[in-house]
Design a protein around this nucleic acid. Structure first.
Lengths: 149, 149
DNA sequence: GGTGAAAGCATCTGGTG
DNA sequence: CACCAGATGCTTTCACC
């Protein structure tokens, strides 16, 4: 799908605050609200916009620990893991990757005991490496129109 | 902040689709829409809800490559990196972590040439390890009310 | 937390370049 | 074909219970 300047501006608005009204976006972008509504609908249909999600604080919901865990799956244990990981509430994001490890996960946990229990759950699938997150340097950086690389 | 069952239901709704109306949430949760509006406002003020963001497709915006890159900073180069990384458009998420590496980043790129250029930008800050993302196994798994660990 | 009135917004229609 | 302008029906917001 072709994205012109107006669509990029709309995307920028929606990435900043998805809950603002079409009218407000219309004012910022310089068109009328029906035009914004139609453009948004088309971008949704084309798959450019994949959804709108509230970001919920981990710390405010008693998940004090965040960690990056990599997994190097044992022979024949990758497939079972891929099916099971969807049911792990602790896993916020999980990617299959190239390299020495097969999997990298971003997990949120309540405390050290919770982390220990979670690593115990992984131990049958492969060898893990855990990195505790100290701080978020960049968080959900919006995609903006960029010049060709 | 104390989160009761109604607030957890509202959070679940907003994590699924942040752009639905309060009235619609009110119907699903079983209270009136002004009650929903007030609960949302309080959760925003308390920092439980950190924001609402449209999820924009990487592939549909010509960013065909996704990668996880870890960085082991050279002596005295971590601080300069932390200040610079905010300006790298390619970096969607960046965490400071414990362990052998100091930094893990999630980056989106247009193609291999773009990846090469990006790694060249990192080379003055430290030693990098790049893992190409093959697939998203779990993506933005919502936080739901969970029993104590 | 509910109710009801007023303001604001989304959506549909017809009309224009 | 995309946009604008105006009318209708929801939604949000506020005062009050």
């Amino acid at each position: 799908m072709k994205l012109d300047t107006i669509n990029w501006k709309i995307l920028t608005c929606l990435q900043q605050n998805a809950r603002q009204s079409n009218t407000e976006i219309a004012r910022k972008v310089g068109v009328t609200s029906p035009a914004v509504a139609e453009r948004i609908r088309k971008m949704e249909d084309a798959g450019v916009i994949e959804g709108y999600h509230a970001k919920v604080s981990h710390s405010e919901t008693e998940h004090q620990l965040k960690a990056i865990i990599t997994l190097r799956a044992f022979m024949g244990r990758l497939k079972p893991f891929l099916e099971t990981v969807k049911n792990f509430d602790e896993v916020v994001n999980c990617y299959r990757i190239t390299g020495n490890e097969n999997i990298v996960m971003e997990v949120v946990l309540k405390n050290q005991k919770h982390l220990e229990k979670f690593i115990d759950k992984l131990i049958t699938y492969g060898e893990t490496r855990t990195h505790i997150v100290l701080s978020n340097v960049v968080e959900n950086n919006p995609i903006i129109k960029r010049l060709p690389a």
